[in-house]
């Protein structure tokens, strides 16, 4: 049964990389079921994240956000800060797709704080870029300028010319 769980996870990932997102969802749902049977929270966390990603490419952004929220909860329970940051970043982008810019800002700020704590300058730069865009969408031009300047400063430091 444990091997079945791992195999469903691998199948789900392969379907995803091939662009078969419905099949990816079906496989990752099976993987999730088996992870729950075993009480394997790391595997459960991975399945939720993979499901969220697949739902993004299916255009089902609300469903994706629910899966990313479960990923975030589990990352916190597992005390994995890097995964917690990644889940916040995914949620920020998903709420941007849903045009809920207030929520997007909320999650991008959470991502920014963790990136700063972890000394992840690339993550911090991406958070500033995303925050600048969300504030622009809301017409908060002073805030947008603040984050654009931070993004420029970090991009120069990391040598990101684009």
């Amino acid at each position: 049964r444990a091997a079945q769980g791992r195999t469903y996870g691998n199948l789900g990932n392969t379907h995803y990389l091939l662009g078969n997102f419905r099949c990816a969802v079906a496989s990752h749902e099976q993987r999730l079921l088996i992870a729950k049977e075993f009480g394997d929270r790391s595997a459960e966390r991975r399945a939720y994240c993979n499901l969220g990603n697949a739902y993004i490419f299916l255009g089902e952004f609300e469903v994706a956000s629910e899966h990313y929220k479960r990923t975030l909860q589990l990352a916190r329970q597992l005390k994995d800060r890097a995964v917690e940051a990644q889940a916040c970043y995914s949620l920020g982008n998903t709420y941007t797709l849903l045009q809920d810019y207030e929520r997007a800002i909320d999650y991008h700020l959470k991502h920014l704080i963790i990136a700063q704590d972890l000394n992840d300058r690339i993550g911090e730069g991406r958070a500033c870029w995303s925050l600048g865009n969300a504030h622009t969408a809301l017409g908060n031009h002073d805030q947008a300028m603040h984050f654009a300047e931070k993004h420029l400063e970090i991009s120069k430091e990391t040598g990101d010319r684009s």
Binding site: L17, R46, N50, T96, L98, R126
Partner: peptide, 26 residues
């Protein structure tokens, strides 16, 4: 901003390009 425009936000586009190749490996 329309749904199509939301998809054109450059930081989101970049995230989706990266996401397309990202999987949580067993």
């Amino acid at each position: 901003m329309s749904r199509v425009k939301a998809l054109q936000v450059d930081s989101v586009q970049r995230w989706m390009e990266d996401l397309r190749h990202m999987t949580e490996v067993e």
